[in-house]
Design a protein around this nucleic acid. Structure first.
Length: 969
RNA sequence: GCCCCCGUAGCCCAAUGGCAGAGGCAGGCCCCUUAAAAGGGCCCCAGUGUGGGUUCGAGUCCCACCGGGGGCACCA
């Protein structure tokens, strides 16, 4: 590597030949990027295995640190200036911590599967792999140009078969497991089968629909029962079908107004046979383990809300059907105390008991509204079910929540009152929550009140509203009323007390039990798309186990994504409710059918044609970074333990610092926690959480401009003049918004590299505020950081000769306290991720040195620490100056400067003197002056004497080193 | 409708409950320059969104409201 000084070509005679310009910065930066790559400066050694070279020198006896960014989706536009905000933040932090002696792992990969790549590929007619690979090349170049300290050996891409082989392997692990409620963890499915065979365990409720016990089931039935316990399973259930995208979506991918998060298409609920992951089994652990994570409270709150724990009771209502078959209806309620006010029941339209509970004909005297104007209950129910299924979530919103439903013609008995109450179906009750059925208590529930008003049902208050209450349903706290029978009297009790009393009575009488439910639903895991991981699943085409999903053996992994003629998904008109999903892989006719010997001879199987959602690859990528080339295991346990293992008892372990956008609060971050916990339960990882500490970087907003018509104009062509902004001499209006094509305000890092260099760019992005705060990108303010680097450069390098101009003299005594205070401040800023403060401190020192040593060389002992302090922020210029100061080695592992405490305390300080809290003077005292000495000094101040004149001093507040306050009485 | 975060100079941002300003941009003046500026220096600029409260003392803690941003929303 050439160490010949780089200088400016003599193009402009007026600029000093060795001034730090953007052009010079660019040459320095690329030189150092080459050198870092050639020397493997940022290679983080593993304790064992292929990447363990250098562990003894670089890692042994040192603490480790695993810093990770949410990896990017490689879109066609490359990066804009908003993307690197977090990447630079983790880079500064990891460089700082490396200088603090840590073995730091920092790398970057690509979340390469997903919808946009597929859509882009369809548009351009190229294979998504080709376009995605091109995009990755572009982004890798941009990341390198930023000077990030990535260990590039560890980069992964989720579309790489060597990577998705292990995504499929983890899927198999999940598929081969069930959740054991007794030990509260996932266990291998074999353990379940063994216990069922031994009779020490019964199938979970709802998993054995055959009406006979396990020993009497046929082999096929047993398979079905076992499969229903798996953590990854196939089920026929209402799901989010999005005709506009041609695929089903998970709940997390549907917005509150019933549209797809991507593309904003309407979403419909309809029953389809799909793969799901039993994330609900982990609801409680996903909730409680949030407590130990160092995450932003807002993100924890969003996850808590999403998981949505409700504590309440299951209550059983007997139906009044004719002799023989009278099923009980189980409802979930958080307010068992209001049971005396339950005047009707409501089932979701899709509830499993609806058919059974539908009467043959209407009882006498039923009003037309209850009957839905139909001749028979069966007609009314069928019509209503059809109506409900055809309504998109969006329509349900826009209907202003007008309540609708029909009567089944059947009654149930309120176990507390013994009253006969009607059973309805209505779409305000949701299938997937609780038991899909409710007891309606209009007196204490607004929704039930509205329905009761619409259908003229009785309303009984069981909680006394306060005097003067004029509302309808009363949902607040108050004493119970109208709540007594021969065996139970709740009247007068407060809500909590009444709940407990009611629950005791319900349990004693066999009418119900305590129950906690969660809003979280199982994760819909299959997609009808091409560009994703194929499932490692096949189905026998004939025989006893026909159509049973079977995992292919590990040796058959990866199941490669086949090439198909047409990888575009089959999409439909947005509102085509009746359309059916159609997987592109079903067109790969040769791939579809496979001959395998899975232990019972060679047979023919058909492959699963759904693909995994693009969240799958990001559920575990941080683990693959640790051991990216391992061909026998997804990650060596010893390596995982080293980088991610718990630090002490009770610690979750996980990535030490994870930085990314808040938009993944309940998608990626919840799914990744779930997968990680399964891997933990099965003994594959030692950490129980993937990300110990999370920081959300803020969003960068850039100026955008609208013309008189309100249309966005190209921001790069807008000129700023006195009195406003102009585009082609026409006045335009400035606003700030998300950077991107739609606002025509794209700014790419490449532009900034060319105009200022990467170090200036890095400094600017870190300077505008704390990492977690959103801020505007002000194109005109970038120059300030270039000026800073120019001043720093001038302290070390003579702009005319290019010679190093530092002196060997000691730092003068006036500069020492400043130097050490700055060191202290920079450390504080680095550690709290408030790099803006670190930069301000460095600027202070640069400005001080510039003035204090104007016209004479700056001492080496001042410049050295200065260069090291700016190194994490502006690593290229720091390396260059460090090298020119005579150090042959990279500064990446040089100790970060440490403040000498002797210089942090002043000998004398100015303290404020207040009288009644108002500033009246200022006096100098020795820094270690005690309260009495400070008070004595304060009393000497002429202005203070005036204010104390003739007054009674009631109290004196003395804060050492800060102030004295006289409180007059 | 409910929940969370944020309001400090023209702008971006600092300030363990203790003298509101560290740093940068913009603006003004000066130096360097034939000239210019992406060079250097100096200067100007707010009483902390509003109203209460706690305190000797509040930008900081508490309450209410206003403004901005985000999340959730028929979840029993």
């Amino acid at each position: 590597m050439s160490q010949a000084p780089v200088s400016n070509p003599a193009v402009d005679l007026d600029i000093p030949p060795h001034r730090y310009t953007a052009a010079l910065a660019g040459r320095i930066e690329q030189t150092w990027q080459d050198r870092w790559a050639a020397e493997g400066t940022f290679a983080a050694p593993n304790p064992v295995g292929e990447l363990s070279d250098g562990f003894a020198e670089r890692a042994n006896e040192r603490p480790k640190l695993f810093v990770n960014d949410m990896f990017p989706y490689p879109s066609g536009e490359g990066l804009h200036v908003g993307h690197p905000l977090g990447y630079i933040g983790t880079d500064v932090y990891s460089r700082y911590m490396r200088m603090r002696g840590h073995n730091v792992l920092h790398t970057m990969g690509f979340d390469a599967f997903g919808l946009p790549a597929e859509q882009f590929a369809v548009q351009t007619g190229q294979h998504p792999r080709v376009t995605t690979e091109q995009n990755i090349v572009t982004i890798r170049r941009q990341l390198r140009r930023l000077g990030l300290d990535h260990d590039t050996r560890r980069s992964v891409s989720t579309m790489d078969p060597d990577y998705y082989k292990w995504t499929q392997w983890i899927f198999k692990q999940i598929f081969a497991s069930f959740y054991d409620g007794d030990s509260d963890r996932a266990l291998p499915i074999e353990a379940l089968v063994a216990e069922l065979d031994a009779g020490t365990r019964q199938p979970e409720p709802g998993t054995n629909p055959y009406g006979v016990a396990w020993p009497d089931l046929t082999a096929r039935q047993r398979n079905s029962v076992v499969d229903a316990h798996r953590l990854a399973y196939v089920s026929e259930a209402p799901v989010n079908w999005c005709p506009g995208l041609g695929t089903v979506l998970s709940n997390e991918e549907v917005t509150a107004d019933g549209r797809s998060e991507r593309g904003n298409f309407p979403v419909f609920r309809r029953p389809l046979r799909q793969w799901k992951m039993r994330i609900t089994a982990y609801a409680e652990r996903l909730l409680t383990d949030l407590d130990v994570l160092e995450w932003p409270e807002s993100i924890k709150l969003m996850q808590r809300n999403w998981i949505g724990r409700s504590i309440g009771a299951i209550i059983s209502f007997k139906s009044a059907l004719p002799i023989g078959k009278a099923p009980s209806i189980e409802v979930f309620t958080t307010r068992p105390d209001t049971l005396f006010g339950a005047t009707y029941l409501v089932l979701a339209p899709e509830h499993a008991l609806v058919e059974e509970l539908t009467a043959a004909e209407w009882p006498l005297g039923i009003s037309a509204s209850w009957r839905g104007d139909r001749g028979s209950p069966a007609d009314a129910v069928a019509a209503y079910q059809k109506f409900a299924s055809r309504r998109s979530e969006l329509e349900r919103q826009t209907d202003q929540r007008v309540k609708s439903g029909v009567f089944l013609g059947t009654y149930a008995t309120n176990p507390a009152t013994g009253d006969r109450i009607p059973i309805f179906i209505a779409d305000y009750v949701l299938t997937g929550y609780g038991t899909g059925a409710i007891m309606a208590v209009p007196g204490q529930d607004e929704r039930d009140w509205e329905f009761a008003e619409a259908y003229d049902l009785p309303i009984v208050r069981t909680v006394a509203p306060p005097d003067g209450f004029e509302g309808k349903a009363f949902t607040g706290a108050g004493p119970a009323i109208n709540s007594a029978n021969d065996f139970l009297d709740l009247n007068g009790m407060a809500v909590a007390e009444a709940k407990a009393a009611m629950l005791g009575w319900l349990v004693g009488g066999g009418h119900g039990e305590a129950r906690t439910t969660y809003r979280l639903r199982d994760w819909l895991f299959s997609r009808q798309r091409y560009w994703g991981e194929p499932f490692p699943i096949v189905y026998p085409v004939d025989g006893e186990d026909v159509d049973r999903p079977i995992a292919v053996p590990d040796e058959a992994l990866p199941v490669l994504l086949p090439d198909v003629e047409d990888y575009s998904p089959r999409t439909f008109p947005d509102d085509d409710v009746t359309s059916e999903p159609e997987a592109p892989l079903a067109r790969a006719t040769e791939w579809l059918s496979v001959e395998l010997d899975l232990g019972d001879g060679v047979r023919t199987y058909r492959r699963e044609t759904n693909t995994m959602p693009n969240w799958a690859g990001s559920c575990w990528y941080e683990l693959r970074y640790l051991d990216p080339r391992n061909e026998t295991v997804f990650c060596d346990p010893a390596i995982e333990k080293y980088w991610m293992g718990p630090r002490e008892d009770g610690d979750s372990g996980g990535v030490d610092l994870y930085v990314g956008g808040a938009e993944h609060a309940v998608l990626h971050l919840l799914y990744a926690r779930f997968w990680h916990k399964v891997l933990f339960d099965l003994g594959h990882v030692s950490s129980s959480e993937p990300f110990r500490r999370l920081v959300n970087q803020g969003m960068l907003q850039a100026p955008a401009y609208t013309d008189a018509r309100g249309m966005y104009v190209d921001a790069s062509r807008v000129e700023s003049r006195v009195g406003g902004f102009y585009y082609d001499d026409a006045a335009v209006r400035q606003e700030f918004g998300k950077i991107g094509k739609s606002l025509k305000n794209m700014i790419t890092p490449d532009d900034i590299f060319a105009d200022y260099g990467a170090d200036t760019f890095r400094l600017y992005e870190m300077f505008t505020g704390p990492l977690d705060q959103s801020r505007p990108w002000d194109p005109k303010a970038v120059i300030g950081m270039l000026r800073l680097l120019q001043r720093l450069w001038r302290l070390v390098i003579d702009e005319q000769t290019g010679e190093v101009r530092v002196s060997q003299h000691p730092v003068d005594s006036a500069s020492l306290p400043i130097l050490h205070r700055v060191i202290e401040g920079v450390r504080g800023g680095m550690e709290s991720l408030r790099f803006n403060i670190a930069i301000a401190r460095v600027t202070e020192l640069v400005n001080h040195a510039t003035q204090a040593y104007a016209g004479r060389p700056v001492p080496r002992d001042l410049v050295g620490p200065l260069v090291l302090m700016i190194a994490p922020l502006a690593p290229h210029i720091a390396e260059e100056l460090w090298s020119r100061l005579g150090h042959p080695e990279s500064l990446a592992r040089t100790d970060f400067p440490l403040a000498d405490p002797r210089y942090l305390v002043d000998e004398r300080v100015q303290i404020a003197v207040q009288v009644n809290g108002k500033l009246r003077g200022s006096v100098g005292v020795p820094a270690d002056a005690d309260a009495a000495a400070m008070e004595a000094a304060a009393r000497q101040d002429p202005n203070v004497i005036v204010h104390l004149e003739g007054a009674q001093v009631r109290r004196v507040i003395s804060v050492p080193g800060k102030l004295v306050n006289f409180v007059l009485g």
